[in-house]
Design a protein around this nucleic acid. Structure first.
Lengths: 229, 229
DNA sequence: TAAATAGTGTCTTTAAGACACTATGGA
DNA sequence: TCCATAGTGTCTTAAAGACACTATTTA
């Protein structure tokens, strides 16, 4: 008897601009499986937990090893442990996956590895995925969209400073609907999550917008008592 | 090397009436540890996952085995896997706990086992707990209170039929604040989560209130795409 | 000066909350 | 008849959304 093996997988989201369609959308990196089962299929990056490694450390390590990405936001999503997650009969032990989800900034996403076995895909229309990873991606998307409504995680998609138009675009792309610029501005300003830097963005084609930064005091995520972990 | 062991624990909440203080509060059953580490301390009910058992099945099975309780609501909470969850050095392998949280009805809670090694405790003032179980209980309480605000899980604390005053009491006890009966009634009625049975509660000391039931169509929890699992 | 985005003002709608009021049973 | 609770009506406040308006830059 092999017992149960425990692994960590991560769904990573980034906003990427597609020059061909001239639109920005949610993308995620996937890795190609190089052995059975599901050899050749795309799957979430991840790997087994080492004996002396915290679960978040496994998530970060496997992310760097397979995609070279360092996320600005990382949170546990759900643990998937159904007995029939892998088609049976299957060689090897049953695997339980602790799944994390992560957000990376566009510049970071550009630096990520991209080759035959690691590639970005549209999060809303993923290719055929190994195991139960399609379900996992769907759930991660739902969590992202739900959490956008009541927290400040949108800021994790952006760099140190940003304009309100950029922040609004994050919401518009993720939630897939347009937002009124005037009302959006008022909401964000009164929420206290951002503060003006005093600088303006230069080089644009129109009136230079104010640059804002995250307010350090405010927590992005609202995970209650788990913030410390 | 032993590898990693995987276990399931569950935080179970019920509303119990304390006759001495004449007040209703949130209680949870705990089990006493009968071996090291933490021998004699109180801990959450649970146990190891069997090789061919789904995680929710482990939760239900260990609940019945240790407390004889069958919950009306059961949902995964979080997976705790810190390397130092148990004080080191410690005999035996590292344990990762997939934690669930559950709600049971008062009648069901009455039927539960209660002896020297299984007892109910006030959820807000638990005794000294083994491992990281104090953190876990705190997080479960936070999730319960957060979820009360935007879902219908309160109904999982009640039986088939109930009055709006009973439903309101669930909110008041869990959220620890009083609610306006008039506004509460309007909110619940317009939410579409309940429907009147046409019957009235008899035997009370005052005007007999209408009895309501849950509307089958409406989902209690709002877990997005994970409702199926 | 035209175009485009930055940013402001204000009205409408909606929901939450406070609170006075009527209704109906039991003691 | 009194009291406690069931249940209704209505006013105030706050937030969300629609949308017209002014401001400032580049081309």
């Amino acid at each position: 008897m092999h017992g149960i093996e425990i692994a960590v997988s991560t769904v990573i989201f980034a906003l990427r601009h597609d020059p061909r369609a001239d639109c920005t959308a949610l993308w995620m990196p996937l890795v190609r499986r190089v052995r059975e089962p599901y050899e050749g299929s795309w799957a979430l990056p991840g790997g087994p937990v080492r004996p002396d490694e915290d679960l978040t450390d496994t998530a970060r390590r496997t992310l760097v090893e397979t995609t070279a990405l360092s996320p600005t936001y990382l949170e546990q999503l759900y643990t998937f442990g159904h007995v029939d997650r892998a088609p049976r009969p299957v060689p090897g032990p049953r695997v339980i996956s602790v799944v994390y989800w992560a957000l990376v900034r566009p510049e970071e996403a550009e630096r990520g590895i991209e080759d035959e076995n690691v590639a970005w895909h549209a999060a809303d229309h993923p290719p055929e995925l190994a195991f139960d990873h399609a379900t996992i991606v769907e759930y991660a998307l739902w969590r992202l969209r739900t959490k956008m409504e009541y927290s400040r995680i949108a800021q994790a998609f952006l760099g140190e400073t940003f304009t309100l138009a950029q922040l609004r675009q994050v919401y518009e792309v993720v939630l897939q609907r347009t937002l009124d610029p005037a009302n959006f501005r008022r909401q964000v300003e009164s929420s206290g999550g951002v503060e003006p830097t005093g600088e303006h963005l230069v080089g644009g084609r129109h009136r230079p917008p104010m640059l804002y930064r995250h307010r350090a005091a405010s927590d992005l995520a609202d995970n209650g008592p788990l913030t410390r972990l």
